[in-house]
Design a protein around this nucleic acid. Structure first.
Length: 840
RNA sequence: GGGCGGUUAGCUCAGCUGGCCAGAGCGCCUCGCUUACACCGAGGAGGCCGGGGGUUCGAAGCCCUCACCGCCCACCA
């Protein structure tokens, strides 16, 4: 009852936030019970890489997930929000390699076992630090179920998935052209290639034609050095310029190789000369042309990007760029270089290290994707996954429809080793467990495939592998499928779509019902935040400055807006002030409560007009807040709550009931306490800390907000007539203040006469809120108000009648507009009756 | 080359399926330290709702078109 004595006049987020998270954890509020009889709700956190720091994306995603998790708990669900981290093979390996480089070492010098030990150490020291940053956000994660994609149980899940694919015959190994990163020395998938614009030179080179002496065919290329591995020339079958050449041979300059000239529809007639040098070993399209026409395959490059042309010692072993200079010089000297042109085009880079990707032939494992993609598309068509915003479903479907087999092998030291073994007799098989002997011949001489799996292969299993799959666990039965996946759009295809595919494949059901794609936060000047540019923001800095609740409320207000947002710190600051406002509103209410127990809510009979008004507004706010969350539009909820709390509740209701609180009016006490109680519940999923703190300061013993029921709107409190009359009152009070200030009159005082009866409550509120004396007769004519039939007389020598001119003009304009509409017969005929009535 | 978003007050953004004088936060101007809050209160200024057509009784919202900005996908060397 006297808690308010301990309340300072300003809210201090740091002091409050520090206490609660530990108490929540201690009370095991976030612990999910798989055997609970309640309906289940679950979310698997998108596991952050163990390489990074918490960034804005985590703040947005984390806030969204926590908001839904808390909301579901309050609405009666047994909630599991599962935390975890991803080993991020290629990214982590790069980090460790950079560390080693700084120590003047390479991983080869260190050796694989020592390297792995080092990685292990990194995972344990850094891994948990990263995920535990979610605590700073107030995330209600079930830490007892913390998972890591390299946990023994998870490793088993990955191996199981691989073996199941193997048994279906969807895994195959073969030499293919892949995206090769010459720095990481590994293949990467198409999705891991980032394209950047390059300004290069397009070289036009003449290849003599063997059968027609004197004639030649001119090709265009940006990578002349790759010509050393050319095995053909291609032209479009319908190109009249070259039709006569098809079937003859070009002689490769500098090398002398005979290149069949073939016709292939992949050739663009408009590009360059319309003739294409075919280098099946170094270009994906060329590789396909080569396949179609049976062209030879030459691998002209080593895995580190140096030329591999032992027959041409002049170029052999040179790095690509050096070879290019030499080749161009030699072509020029030989008279083969026709011309050069500046050329702008897209060049692929390694997502992780930025190196230019070399399309290279290498032996890789591929996973057949067609059947899983089809199943995923079908599930989508049945509406089993709902996307928010909806349009992202298309991003996903488009990718699925054009899906290609997935190169799942990586030539890294770090990651899930591919569980394929070859015995001394050449038998190859996959095994979940470490095999002791060959399944076919019993040979004990086994060798495991040296490659590891793409990180995303293990991530794809996240929603069920974290719950214990392939074992049939309580968790899996209780919490699969999960309900929500909240993530960034850049990993829709890398991650979300693959989870959907594996979920259907292994669990028979899509892994989540809803996918929420949050926006991307750009810098204040519209730049993309990136570590390399050094323009990222650490959410924890904002948390220190404004408190977590402010950061979260801001996150909720922007995350699901349809477009990316520029970072605007003043908006976070605005929510910090909002927390302060809540703090002080609570102080006021507590001060007004007195010692008597307050019945909540007050009996109808005792409710005054303004009480019925705020309760009616509250019902609308409850509905709006719930709808916002249900519709994945948290901004609707948070903005509505902000508006109600600040403007309806603080500006008008509390101002209006101050005198009654002082007079110990039971209805005012009960209603203000009730509204505050409900408001704190509604805000809790968004701003868990202030709300918890304030709620516990309210009278009576209180549990935790997360375990208290989410408010339900009650029709009983809907009072449209109260809303209408208070709305008119507010408009009139605003008008009086406007006139008074414009007239330079004192802030209080003046007399008001109603020209129509308004009832005692309105009169009293008007007197109080507008600080006027309500009288039956004015001394003089006064000023006629426009919002209500009333006249105002101010204690100044002369009221400036023009003061209210603007308002009057607006009203007159409005009237004129309405008259014009109403005199328009077509409007009367065609507009709906309700609209016409409103104009009247 | 396809596809998708965006363009609303000085800044950052709301405006759902077309219908109250187009809103909020911040900033700006003028007042006010009245016993919840100066992290505050009261008032105010400020917008051809990107340009141009069209549909409609009525458009920021629907259709067409143009111009920028951004994102995703894509094997034109």
């Amino acid at each position: 009852m006297s808690q308010n004595h301990a309340m300072s006049t300003a809210y201090d987020p740091q002091a409050v936030e520090a206490r609660w998270y530990a108490r929540w954890e201690e009370a095991q509020l976030f612990l999910a019970d798989a055997r609970s009889p309640r309906p289940k709700y679950s979310i698997a956190v998108p596991p952050p890489n163990v390489t990074g720091e918490l960034h804005m994306g985590h703040a947005l995603g984390g806030t969204l997930q926590d908001t839904w998790a808390r909301y579901r708990r309050m609405t009666g669900y047994e909630v599991l929000w599962l935390p975890g981290t991803d080993h991020a093979a290629i990214a982590t390996q790069n980090v460790i390699e950079r560390q080693l480089a700084a120590e003047g070492m390479t991983k080869e010098q260190l050796g694989r076992p020592a390297f792995e030990a080092r990685v292990e150490e990194w995972y344990t020291t850094v891994g948990e630090t990263i995920i535990s940053q979610f605590r700073d956000l107030g995330a209600s994660l079930d830490w007892s179920r913390l998972r890591f994609t390299m946990d023994p149980a998870y490793v088993r899940a990955v191996r199981t998935a691989f073996v199941r694919f193997w048994e279906k015959g969807w895994l195959y190994r073969g030499p293919r052209i892949v995206n090769w990163c010459p720095r990481c020395l590994s293949a990467i998938s198409d999705l891991e290639v980032v394209w950047e614009e390059h300004h290069d030179t397009l070289y036009f080179i003449r290849y003599p034609v063997e059968e027609l002496s004197g004639e030649g065919v001119v090709i265009a290329t940006v990578r002349p050095e790759t010509m050393l591995a050319d095995t053909g020339v291609a032209v479009h079958p319908a190109d009249p310029r070259y039709r006569h050449l098809v079937g003859s041979h070009a002689i490769l300059p500098l090398v002398g190789r005979r290149l069949p000239i073939v016709a292939d529809e992949a050739v663009e007639r408009e590009f360059g000369t319309g003739a294409l040098k075919v280098t099946p070993g170094h270009d994906p399209m060329d590789w396909e042309i080569g396949q179609r026409h049976g062209l030879d395959l030459i691998n002209g490059m080593h895995l580190d990007g140096r030329m591999n042309v032992p027959d041409l010692p002049a170029y052999d072993g040179l790095p690509g760029v050096e070879a290019r200079g030499l080749v161009v010089r030699d072509l020029e000297a030989g008279g083969f270089l026709v011309k050069t042109e500046p050329y702008v085009h897209q060049v692929g880079h390694c997502d992780r290290c930025g190196s230019v990707i070399e399309p290279l032939i290498s032996e890789q494992w591929f996973l057949r994707m067609g059947p899983m993609a089809e199943a995923a598309i079908a599930a989508s068509e049945r509406g089993e996954v709902r996307w928010h915003p909806e349009r992202y479903e298309r991003t996903y479907l488009d990718w699925l429809r054009g899906i290609r087999d997935w190169c799942v092998s990586r030539q890294l030291w770090l990651g899930h080793r591919i569980p394929v073994y070859t015995c001394a007799n050449g038998h190859r098989f996959a095994s979940v467990d470490e095999p002791a002997a060959c399944v076919e011949c019993g040979s004990r001489q086994l060798e495991q495939d040296p490659d590891v799996l793409d990180t995303w292969f293990s991530s794809a299993l996240w929603p069920f592998a974290t719950l214990g799959w392939p074992e049939d666990t309580d968790d899996l039965r209780a919490f699969y499928p999960t309900d929500l996946n909240a993530t960034a759009r850049e990993i829709i295809n890398l991650w979300v779509s693959r989870m959907i595919m594996t979920g259907i494949e292994f669990m028979g059901r899509v892994p989540f019902a809803d996918v929420a794609i949050h926006c991307v936060v750009q810098t204040a000047d519209g730049q993309r935040m990136s570590k390399s540019k050094g323009n990222t923001l650490d959410p924890r800095d904002m948390i220190r400055k404004y408190g977590v609740d402010a950061v979260r409320a801001w996150a909720a207000s922007v995350a699901m807006s349809g477009q990316d947002v520029r970072f605007d710190e003043t908006r976070i600051e605005g929510f910090k002030r909002f927390a302060n406002k809540l703090w002080n509103a609570t102080r006021l209410v507590l001060n007004g409560l007195g010692e008597d127990p307050v019945p909540v809510p007050a009996p109808d009979a005792d409710l005054r007009l303004i009480d019925r008004w705020i309760l009616s507004r509250l019902q609308a706010t409850i509905r709006g807040a719930g709808r916002g969350i249900e519709d994945y539009l948290p901004q609707v909820s948070i903005n509505g709550l902000y508006d109600f709390a600040w403007h309806d509740f603080c500006d008008w209701y509390l101002e209006a009931v101050k005198p009654r609180l002082r007079d110990a009016d039971p209805a005012a006490r009960a209603v203000s306490l009730h509204v505050l109680d409900v408001l704190l519940r509604l805000l809790h999923p968004f701003m868990p800390f202030v709300t918890e703190e304030l709620w516990h300061r309210l009278p009576d013993e209180r549990d935790f907000l997360i375990r208290s029921p989410w408010p339900e709107a009650s029709d009983r409190f809907d009072a449209p007539e109260a809303e209408a009359s208070i709305a008119r009152l507010i408009a009139m009070v605003d008008e009086i203040r406007r006139i008074r200030q414009a007239a330079g009159a004192p802030r209080r005082g003046g007399r008001l006469r109603f020209e129509q009866p308004v009832g005692p409550e309105i009169a009293e509120l008007a007197a109080d809120l507008a600080a006027v004396q309500v009288v039956d007769e004015l001394a003089g004519p006064g000023v006629a108000l426009t919002e209500l039939p009333a006249r105002l007389e101010l204690p100044v020598a002369e009221v400036d009648h023009s003061a209210n001119a603007a308002a009057r003009k607006r009203l007159e304009d409005d009237l004129a507009r309405a008259r014009a509409k109403l005199s328009n017969q077509e409007f009367l005929d065609r507009a709906p009756a309700a609209v016409v009535e409103k104009e009247r």
